[in-house]
Structure formats: C-alpha cells, structure tokens
C-alpha cells in the first residue's frame, strides 16, 4: 500500500522521532511511505481559537498538499490532527462559503487515519510483538487523548497495541479519560485552570510508578511531559509510535534527547 504520512507540525518540528518511528513501522510491514512535501499543519490551533479566517489558508494548503499526492491512505500520529482534518476542514470551508474546498477537504479527510486506527482497522495488526516485533521492556502508563477518544472513537485500539508489545508492563492510569488540560491556546488563555488539570493528571501518572506515560498525541504528551519536567519528576512521556517501532535490536531510548525530562537534562 502507498501510505502518505501527515507528520503534523508539532511532530515535524519538535518530535521528529515520532514521525520516523511511524515510517519505520509502516515500512517494516512492507508498505511504501510518501511524504507530501507541501504539508505543514492542520490549522486546528487557528480554528479552536476562533481565527477561522486565518485557518483557511492553512487548511487550503493541507488539502492541496494531499490532493497533489498519489496515495491509498494517509496516516498521522495524532488523533487530534486527524479529527481536525476530518471534521473541521469541511466545516470551516463551508462556513466561509468555499464549496470547492469543502468537497476536496471532505475527500482528503475520508482517506486519513490515526496511526492505531490504520494499524488495527486497515492493516489488521492486533499483536504488536508478533506482527511488528515491538519490544519495550519498561513500566508504562497510558493517557488516551480526548480527541482520539471522543472525536475518533478510537476505543481501546491504542491500549491494545501497547499491551501486545513484548516486555512492556502496562500500569493502568486511574481516571485516564480525564483531559490533561492542554486544549491548545486554552493552556495560555486559562493557564490557571489548565495547570490545575495538569497537576491532577501528573499526580495520577506518577502514582502508577511507571517510567513513562505513553499516548497518541504529541501535543498532549508535550503538555504532560512539560508538567512532569517542571515538577522535577523522572517520569517522561513517549509517543505510541516510538514504542511500537522499538525492537530488541533497535530499542527506543526513554531518555532521548528531545524528551522533556530532568534525566536527559543532566546528560
């Protein structure tokens, strides 16, 4: 299958290892990965902050970039960006009266999957250890991000994949379905409430005794990881893709250079 990677702006710029891991997993399964080079961002930050006018060029760019590429399905290592492409792009195009863009956006949106969705529903992966060779000998807890959970209805796909990684010890996160408090510009506009939500989330993560918290959205992981770092905790965050890409031969580093963590900070 020819799979187009939508890296998402935050992964592209801040967490390239997550995108490389996504490529690795798909190539390991024998698929061809392409990277539509015109891509930049889904525009969710603009839409969610009410800047619809400013979102339009961002959305138009995304649609053009993927329209121009020849591929079977697209994938993004982010539930929230996939939800934006699927739901927000046609909605914004409609609200500004651009029916041509709405149609193209709907077509592009129909072909994009969140990583676990693609792996489970399209590629039939149910056993990460057996089918992907995933190996990750650490105690891990898992935060299901809101948009993957409620907008894409990912259910337990991500957790199932994680659970089937060889060597992993999954520690259940109490009240996992509670938002971490990120919410894009909410974290700045309502910094106090956002911080209070984050504090409760990090406390629960730390109490699990896990080495790190995994998830499917880099932005939430940056938020949670940033909070853990500020609190001086050793617990870090890591994207699901990197855990799935990790093998016995090439294990993922949990103290990688770009994690927010006090551990690597002392390196």
């Amino acid at each position: 299958m020819r799979i187009a990677l939508f890296a998402t702006c935050i992964v592209d710029a801040m967490y390239p290892a997550t995108a490389r891991a996504t490529v690795k997993i798909l190539e390991r399964l024998g698929h061809e990965v392409v990277f539509p080079s015109g891509q930049a961002c889904c525009g969710q930050m603009h839409v969610n902050s009410g800047y619809l006018k400013e979102a339009v060029p961002v959305i138009a760019n995304h649609v053009a970039a993927f329209d121009a590429e020849d591929y079977d399905v697209a994938v993004a290592p982010s539930g929230s960006c996939v939800a934006s492409v699927k739901h927000q792009h046609p909605m914004v195009a409609r609200s500004c009266g651009d029916t041509a863009l709405e149609e193209r956006a709907t077509a592009v949106g129909a072909k994009v999957y969140e990583l676990s969705e693609l792996l489970v529903d399209v590629l039939g992966i149910t056993d990460a250890g057996g089918q992907l060779g995933s190996y990750f000998p650490h105690r891990v807890t898992y935060h299901p991000s809101c948009h993957g959970m409620r907008l894409l209805r990912l259910g337990d796909r991500q957790a199932q994949l994680l659970g089937s990684v060889v060597g992993i010890e999954l520690a259940e996160l109490p009240e996992a379905d509670q938002c971490c408090g990120f919410g894009g510009t909410f974290s700045m506009k309502n910094a106090d409430v956002s911080s209070a939500m984050l504090k409760d989330k990090t406390a629960k993560i730390i109490a699990t005794g896990a080495t790190l918290c995994a998830g499917g959205d880099a932005s939430c992981l940056m938020h949670i990881g940033g909070g853990l770092s500020r609190q001086g905790s050793d617990v870090t965050t890591l994207h699901l893709a990197e855990i799935l890409a990790s093998t016995v031969e090439e294990p993922a580093s949990v103290t990688g250079d770009i994690r927010v963590s006090t551990r690597k900070a002392t390196r």
């Binding site: 592209d12 390239p16 984050l198 504090k199 940033g226 909070g227 770009i258």
Partner: peptide, 13 residues
C-alpha cells in the same frame, strides 16, 4: 507550570 523541550537538531522534513 510546564517546561518546553529543546527543539530537535533537525526537523522530520
């Protein structure tokens, strides 16, 4: 209440 990681040496792109 949060730190930001140092940017990576190079982007995915």
């Amino acid at each position: 209440s949060r730190d930001i990681p140092a940017p990576p040496p190079q982007s995915f792109r």
